[in-house]
């Protein structure tokens, strides 16, 4: 094989990885998260409920371009709000309500177990989220 055909093969292989990555990243949205059983009226009455119906969404909380660049800041803010303040509801500019939880993201993106890893691998970033949080690679969400 000459140099040029080697180059062509490498190019084709690289291209196919990118096409696969693109499909992975844009893989579809899953439906709603199942309703939970055993709801206690007394606990429900004393619990602050998120306004509106969260999680079940066909659209991302914010535009894709924004999320690509800023999802880490969004998650960091969500973590502080929900863990430390108990403020669990995120309202996006269109007025849709979402639960401030990683599960909101995985409600859709969990359908593609590679979603987070593809980009992180490509960008060579090593976030520590999955040291504790269970990724869709480990358990189905």
């Amino acid at each position: 094989m000459n140099k040029f055909s080697q180059f062509l093969v490498a190019l084709a292989a690289g291209l196919s990885v990118f096409v696969a990555a693109w499909f992975f990243i844009h893989a579809g949205h899953r439906g709603s998260v199942p309703a939970h059983a055993e709801v206690s009226p007394a606990v429900a009455a004393a619990t602050v409920k998120p306004g509106g119906a969260p999680v079940d969404s066909a659209k991302c909380i914010l535009p894709t371009d924004y999320m690509r660049a800023h999802h880490m800041q969004v998650l960091d803010k969500w973590r502080k709000d929900s863990v430390r303040k108990g403020n669990r509801t995120f309202v996006n500019p269109e007025g849709a309500h979402f639960d401030k939880s990683l599960n909101t993201c995985l409600g859709c993106h969990g359908s593609n177990p590679m979603f987070c890893f593809m980009c992180h691998e490509y960008a060579n970033v090593k976030p520590t989220c999955w040291n504790c949080h269970l990724s869709p690679m480990e358990v189905s969400q």
Partner: peptide, 9 residues
């Protein structure tokens, strides 16, 4: 607390 937020015991 992860259950309480859903209204579960």
């Amino acid at each position: 607390s992860e259950r309480l937020v859903k209204g579960e015991l």
